[in-house]
Design a protein around this nucleic acid. Structure first.
Length: 617
RNA sequence: GGGGCGGUAGCUCAAUUGGUUAGAGUACCGGACUGUCGAUCCGGUGGUUGCGGGUUCGAGUCCCGUCCGCCUCGCCA
């Protein structure tokens, strides 16, 4: 075999005159009869190889070259020279070409179902189903190779940073114990213990805490996590986290460490200097932006106008405000009226668009979205304008209205109203063209750390308390006493306790979340009690953790970054499948390997399991 | 589990109100061609219109079911 001396993306005019050998795929062929051009591709780039009988290509070489087709795997030997036909500015190697004297066809290809080409202007990729089935071809595309490279850089930068900061990389089990809190789990039957099952970890949470008890002090891992829930464009059942945990730290120290990591990563991978990251409380985020991961690159903040709305003649305002009127102001069940002022919306947001908003907020459980426009004379128009007339001055002042504005109103209980407007705000920002493209295209990266989350929220169906982050999250230092002493039936107090948790948000997307953990058994027991677990149940589920905590657990805390989402940001895609080498579809299938697939009766017997339904064909 | 969009040649798409033999570009096959780089020119092969049923004289088109892909709500401690 003619083993390569250079890669296909390497040749420059400095190589002119050298004899080189290239290995790669036929990216394109242009056959002029007695003159043939082949573009050879490997992951580094493309080089043009010329076959010309007058410059050393014998009859056999010409004949073989004539038969080359896209995606054949070849080796070519020849001399580098400046291109006779002029430079091709589209290629990094475009100044030179290889005049081929020897050609070896390493492997002919079947006619491929599609060619691994990035879509040019107006071009389209073959549909994703086909590309997933033949992932090995799709991954040959320069874009996919680039993404694999960026992901590699993220791994390397991550390991360097945490190594420099004294973290030990430690692997934790993939065959794990089922912890029925949280996401649905993937199960694996045990052969040795009939009737018993492993679960694949939703995260290494408990192991990393136990590593702290074990004196590891600083742990990190780039680990696979599994959650058997329906995917989204940015979610996959099997995904990767940068997981870390630190001992003898307060919340501030962990946030410093993770901020340092973000700064290093963005510098290494994107060449961006990240400024000091702003902090924002959960309550403030929800009030101003209606979401716990606000995108603060644009305004469109949400205003609570309940007070003035109560004096209006709008029936559904009053109806909403009557709900839970006796509850504290931020209680999820209290009725409120909120609005977003959209500067310039009167012109850009057409009736068709705002009708869409009405449907949009209904999707989040709100009754609808009222729309009022401010005309050039400063008068309110359309929708409920007439019913607001009596409180017009109050509305104008509360929202700072100006001519040309559109105002979007939602009235409902606090949780629904906030959620609906938080989602609507993002949709409006897109429609108004307010969302910059991040990163290389020039838009800013907008980082935010959100803190002071509530410890608990109500389960929407059962009304029971559930942990907002997870049941091992500690209350904020100054809240610990109040928490331990709180009466479990005192809902107002329970709801007011905030945790020592923190999320990192970039451009409105959560990329990391963590907390200081509970290291005191009495605090942990209190959490379990609130979650409705008896001491016996808690022991049954988490005895190993409780036991570990009782044998000298240091104060500790940590965080986990969603690595796939980090890579998505760096490469500018909204599709998580783009950044995973072998991703799964919406129903969790791997279209290339055909997983999941049936197993034999014998295999089932060995693990003491039986199928309730036959495998689907 | 709910809602939406889609599935026609290997690929990307078209096909008027339900109406002639389902077309085009590209890929592939054959031929021509000495400077291309989306090579060009000539010719050709290629179809269970995802699958199953129904309505109709007649279905790619309408109806029902189903499978698959994507987006999304729920879900994701």
């Amino acid at each position: 075999m003619l083993i390569r001396t250079h890669t296909c993306g390497q040749l420059r005019d400095a190589h002119v005159g050298q004899t080189v050998r290239l290995n790669g795929w036929v990216n394109a062929y242009r056959d002029h009869g007695r003159l043939i051009f082949i573009d050879m591709r490997d992951r580094t780039g493309v080089s043009q190889v010329v076959f010309d009988p007058e410059t050393g290509a014998g009859a056999a070489v010409m004949e073989a070259a004539d038969r080359l087709r896209n995606e054949d795997v070849i080796a070519a030997e020849g001399t580098v020279r400046v291109r006779i036909g002029g430079e091709n500015p589209k290629l990094a190697t475009g100044k030179v070409e290889v005049v081929c004297t020897k050609l070896e066809v390493l492997n002919k290809t079947e006619n491929p179902p599609f060619l691994p080409e990035d879509p040019g202007a107006g071009g389209k990729l073959p549909n994703e189903e086909l590309r997933l089935k033949h992932r090995y071809i799709d991954l040959r595309r320069p874009r996919m190779q680039q993404i694999l490279g960026v992901r590699h850089k993220v791994y390397q930068s991550t390991r360097r940073y945490f190594d420099e900061n004294g973290f030990l990389e430690i692997e934790t089990p993939i065959l794990y114990k089922s912890t029925p809190e949280g996401a649905r789990e993937f199960l694996v039957p045990s052969r040795h213990l009939p009737g018993n099952w492993f679960a694949l970890p939703q995260s290494p949470q408990l192991f990393k805490q136990i590593l702290m008890v074990a004196g590891v002090d600083r742990y990190m891992q780039i680990c696979r996590c599994f959650r058997d829930e329906d995917p989204r464009a940015d979610r996959q059942a099997e995904f990767t986290q940068v997981d870390l945990e630190m001992s003898f730290v307060c919340r501030e120290r962990v946030m410093e460490m993770m901020e340092g990591f973000v700064r290093r990563l963005w510098k290494d991978v994107a060449g961006v200097d990240v400024p000091a990251i702003q902090r924002m409380g959960y309550r403030e985020a929800m009030e101003r932006f209606g979401i716990d991961r606000p995108d603060t690159r644009y305004g469109l903040e949400i205003a609570d106008i309940s007070e003035v709305a109560a004096r209006s003649e709008v029936g559904f305002f009053k109806e909403a405000l009557a709900k839970g009127a006796d509850l504290p102001r931020f209680n999820s069940g209290r009725g409120v009226v909120k609005a977003i002022r959209v500067p310039g919306g009167a012109e850009r947001l057409t009736r068709k668009i705002t009708d869409g908003y009405n449907e949009f907020v209904r999707g989040f459980g709100a009754g609808g979205c009222a729309v009022v426009k401010v005309n050039a004379a400063g008068e309110l128009e359309t929708g409920i304008a007439r019913l607001l007339q009596s409180v017009k001055a109050g509305v104008v002042t509360a929202l700072g209205l100006k001519p040309g504005d559109t105002v979007l109103f939602v009235a409902d209980v606090y949780s629904t109203c906030t959620k609906a407007l938080g989602e609507l705000r993002q949709a409006v920002a897109r429609d108004m063209g307010l969302v910059p493209r991040p990163g290389a295209e020039g838009g800013p990266w907008n980082f935010l750390i959100v803190v002071d989350f509530p410890m608990f929220e109500r389960d929407k169906e059962t009304g029971r308390w559930i942990a907002m982050h997870h049941p091992f999250t500690a209350p904020r230092d100054d809240q610990a006493e109040a928490f331990v002493n709180a009466d479990p039936s005192d809902a107002v107090t329970i709801e007011s306790i905030v945790s020592a948790g923190y999320d990192i948000v970039v451009n409105g997307q959560e990329i990391a979340g963590g907390s200081i953990r509970i290291h005191a058994p009495r605090v942990q027991s209190k959490v379990f009690q609130l979650l409705g677990m008896t001491p016996e149940q808690a022991k049954e589920k988490f005895s190993f953790l409780l036991e570990a905590l009782s044998y000298g657990a240091p104060p500790h805390g940590g965080i986990a970054f969603g690595l796939d989402r980090l890579v998505m940001n760096f490469v500018g895609t909204g599709n998580i499948r783009d950044v995973i080498a072998f991703p799964k579809t919406q129903i969790g299938q791997d279209l290339m390997t055909g997983a999941p697939g049936p197993v034999t009766e014998e295999q089932l017997r060995e693990v003491h399991a039986r199928a309730l339904v036959p495998p689907r064909a």
